[in-house]
């Protein structure tokens, strides 16, 4: 691991240098919302932007992706499939979202591996950034994530006041940092204390200190509990929680056809949607909303851990902030522990 200091005035030149070689995907502000998008100029990058609505997993797993397209005519079939994975830098990823890539790797790289996910992970340099402020809904530390640690990134930046601490955490990250030594100064002493104090201050900003305990085991007894039906009474059955969640990964494959040509798409899907488990026979194993809502929380809080050995939630707080009817996973966790 290589530790350097990047002064604040050098951040923009650092980003511009990256843009000479890579497509840069970074947080940008649109009104009072943050989105991760490819940028044309370094000035568009909002390094300290508040939490994005759509998590950066979208870069690796786009909401809509063409798998192949086909055309038929005079007895011929042409088929064109592609995997889009340009060399890119995904910049400004928070520690919660960095963890989400590990959660999704467990799903997508499980044999047989998803070529689309794998190619983009392979071709993307990850630059994480520590949080400067925490949203009240955040609770990443409940899952052993630190808001100031860049686990999973190639390079991780932390604002320590006068400069950024730049940690190169992988060989790819080191190569980038060491290839431009003029950007950096050597780190000064006392970094550990600064990071510790920053982490403590951020954690204190969480409105609720969530304790996970042994949620998967507790949930094993609660599948038939009436709690899920009561919770589902206010649930709208929309897809907000799913589509803003950094670890959700369900998708639908659809074919669209225009006469002699067509294409196959992969699109995000939500387990809360009515037709998510609808069979062509008309049977729907999760026909009732409370069955679908229960499934969401069992997957997030139990099944993911059981199947992949990694917790399905990263405590980013997006679903808590955006659910129109205040279905709050922090409250659900506390309730499960009590029941």
């Amino acid at each position: 691991m290589v530790l350097k200091l990047l002064s604040k005035e050098r951040l923009l030149p650092f980003i511009e240098r990256l843009m000479q070689k890579f497509l840069l995907v970074a947080p940008v502000r649109e009104g009072n919302l943050t989105f991760y998008q490819p940028v044309k100029t370094a000035a568009e990058v909002a390094v300290d932007a508040p939490r994005s609505v759509v998590p950066p997993k979208e870069w690796f797993f786009p909401q809509t992706e063409e798998i192949y397209r086909y055309a038929t005519g005079s007895g011929n079939l042409s088929l064109a499939g592609k995997v889009t994975a340009p060399p890119a830098v995904l910049f400004g990823v928070r520690p919660c979202d960095l963890r989400s890539f590990d959660v999704l790797d467990a799903v997508f790289l499980h044999e047989p591996a998803d070529r689309y996910w794998a190619a983009r992970r392979e071709n993307t340099l990850l630059i994480g950034v520590s949080c400067n402020t925490a949203c009240p809904e955040c609770f990443c530390t409940a899952y052993g994530i630190s808001p100031v640690k860049g686990t999973g990134a190639d390079i991780h930046l932390t604002d320590i006041g006068t400069a950024y601490l730049a940690e190169a955490l992988t060989p790819e990250g080191e190569e980038i940092v060491l290839s431009s030594p003029e950007f950096y100064e050597e780190k000064v002493a006392g970094i550990e204390e600064v990071l510790g104090a920053k982490e403590k201050a951020l954690t204190e900003e969480f409105a609720v200190q969530v304790e996970i305990g042994d949620i998967p085991a507790k949930m094993a007894r609660l599948f038939d509990h009436p709690y899920w039906e009561e919770l589902s009474r206010r649930c709208l059955g929309c897809g907000i929680c799913t589509y803003v969640c950094p670890t959700c990964h369900c998708f639908d494959i659809t074919d669209e056809n225009r006469g002699n040509a067509g294409w196959r798409l992969r699109c995000w899907d939500a387990c809360l949607f009515r037709d998510y488990t609808l069979h062509t026979s008309g049977h729907n194993p999760r026909h009732a909303l409370h069955q679908r809502l229960r499934n969401r929380f069992f997957h997030k809080l139990k099944y993911n851990q059981d199947r992949y050995g990694i917790e399905g939630c990263v405590g980013c707080g997006r679903c808590v902030a955006l659910c129109p009817v205040n279905i709050d996973i922090r409250e659900i966790i506390a309730t499960i522990r009590r029941l």
Binding site: Q63, G237, C238, G239, I240
Partner: peptide
């Protein structure tokens, strides 16, 4: 362009 097709508008 931003719409996520979450259908919250429809469901509510």
């Amino acid at each position: 362009g931003r719409c996520l097709r979450c259908y919250a508008c429809r469901e509510v």
